[in-house]
Design a protein around this nucleic acid. Structure first.
Lengths: 232, 232
DNA sequence: CCAAAAGTGTTGGTCGTACACCCATGC
DNA sequence: GCATGGGTGTACGACCAACACTTTTGG
């Protein structure tokens, strides 16, 4: 990673923005760079694309190293081709957005250099993990731009796609309250209480994407919640 | 174009899907390939990205050759990185969607090898120019996939962005009927008559994107139409 | 019984659609 | 006047937000 590329040759890389939702918060996984360029800056995981693989293959492989044994959902985000985006040479990067449930991310984080940063504010891009707060200038390359774009994409698509379901711990047994916390994490604001149920039922139950099971939660406080499952 | 690339090296290219709207039809510009691979197949214009330019620069340059003196609107569509998408070697292509008014496209087509194909059907991808009908198998590389994806993108974004306005002959003097024909071209179906006016007024006038002028059309049949202009 | 969480009913506003109608021009 | 296309009024249903209310559990 420290060497420069041969002159007048373009390389293709992938960067993966792995996101997760926990307790109504949206989190992004970053690792701190050790070597130049951008030493000590925080960066999205990524690598060069080799001759034998597609960009999507490469993104999946990056994700597999990060989160072994996960078929996390991937979506192509945008391709960044700024001439000076990497000081080592000309690298065109295809950015991918990945979505995984917090539980699987957390279990893979022990012994990993990655840290999960919570999105505090999107306009100035503030990310926090414990007492450490990052802003865009602490991020390597154009990764700040990637992250802002990724958040925007999530927010835009949450209303008319099934991305929210990719964050559920168990797609075959979830409550509407769990789903609601995911929505709140993505949108960054509380959603009305009672109406959320109706919205989900209208939008996804009728369209056959999810199905209500006969099971219910047990042991918690309050009335038990109906468990739903995804179809397919 | 006919030679192969050095082994184990990736190249980056751009392909431009130039679209235009005329008389309620959506059209795509294609040229017929003369040499292998895909000789006699129809293809989107494109070229390799050089070391000194971004992908977007390259796409603009392709467009500038095709349609000189036009600042046609460009939007990144998707990056295609299939390992065998180009038999000459490994080429990753960043596809761009371009939007221009028919009048400017038509005036640039004289003496050009490009032809404007009307989208007849999107599911099977049928394109027609005069008596010549193309289907996906007549298209080079993965350009059929690009085109289908481009149409989908247009249809999805027409409702909540300003892409429809990019097809207007004169953004500073257009009627709502002209805009409606653009909508019908993109959506591929007629939109209700009277309600379109209200929709546009609600969606764009109130939000300050367009402004009604004091001018009106003259000379045509029927009642003269109010002329609108885009703000900025 | 009380607290807490799940879920429903009700109301009022906004928006899209259908369709009837009026308006301003050329002939 | 009449045909033609531009533009408005009105009515209905779908959907969404607010918020009060009922239901079902644990303590």
């Amino acid at each position: 990673m420290g060497e420069t590329l041969p002159q007048s040759q373009l390389a293709v890389a992938v960067d993966v923005m792995l996101t997760t939702a926990c307790e109504g918060e949206l989190r992004v996984l970053l690792s701190q760079r050790k070597a130049a360029p951008y030493a000590h800056c925080w960066a999205l995981p990524g690598r060069m694309v080799t001759y034998q693989e597609t960009a999507e293959n490469a993104a999946h492989a990056v994700l597999e190293e990060l989160l072994p044994g996960t078929g996390a959902a991937l979506e192509q985000l945008y391709t960044f081709s700024g001439v000076n985006r990497d000081p080592r040479g000309r690298v065109v990067s295809v950015a991918y957005l990945a979505m995984a449930p917090w539980e699987r991310v957390a279990s893979s984080m022990a012994g990993s250099p990655m840290r999960a940063f919570t999105l505090v504010e999107n306009s100035r891009l503030l990310l926090r993990d414990g007492s450490l707060t990052l802003q865009e200038s602490h991020l390597a390359f154009d990764h700040g731009e990637m992250i802002r774009m990724g958040i925007e994409r999530l927010r835009g698509k949450v209303e008319y796609t099934d991305i929210a379901f990719r964050y559920l711990r168990d797609p075959d047994a979830f409550t509407l309250a769990e789903l609601q916390r995911v929505y709140e994490a993505i949108l960054g604001r509380p959603t009305g209480s009672g109406n959320f149920q109706r919205m989900i039922r209208n939008r996804y139950l009728e369209r056959g994407l999810i199905r209500q099971t006969a099971r219910k939660t047990r042991g918690g406080q309050g009335r038990p919640a109906a468990l739903f499952e995804m179809v397919n």
